[in-house]
Nucleic acid binder design. Structure first.
Length: 121
DNA sequence: TTTCTTACA
DNA sequence: TGTAAGGA
């Protein structure tokens, strides 16, 4: 990082009252090198996973990959799974299930008001 | 700086 | 499968 890069913040809310930044799941998108460092994985590997369909980072108009906190967490999961000997097929299934679970949690907490894992880990 | 392709282990 | 390097 020769320069503190600010990964093109597409749209931001007008902050006038010194509000703290809240890391949304899909809010801030990092460049590949940033995501690679955050996940502790070389950019080339991140690209390889994406080519296998294990990761699907958002792309900007120019075609640059933009990794969100979601993608970072996912990349860590992929790293562990692949390290355990899980093939891309298995990793993809696991990621799919985890993604579905996460989605169900959000829907449940939104409907009932109490968190899905309220009091449960 | 990032992307893609190709090659190697 | 993951990593390296080249060239745009």
């Amino acid at each position: 990082m020769t320069r503190d890069e600010a990964p093109e913040p597409g749209g931001r809310e007008g902050n006038g009252g010194g509000e703290g930044v809240r890391p949304h799941p899909d809010r801030a998108l990092y460049a590949i090198s940033v995501a690679a460092e955050l996940a502790g994985i070389p950019p080339a590997t991140l690209r390889a996973w994406e080519a296998k369909g294990l990761l699907t980072p958002r792309r900007t108009d120019g075609g640059t990959r933009r990794y969100s906190e979601n993608d970072i967490a996912r990349s860590r999961r992929i790293a562990e799974l692949s390290a355990q000997g899980v093939n891309s097929s298995g990793i993809r299934q696991i990621l799919e299930l985890q993604d579905e679970n996460a989605r169900l949690r959000g829907a449940a907490s939104s409907a009932t008001g109490d968190g899905p894992g309220a009091g449960q880990d």
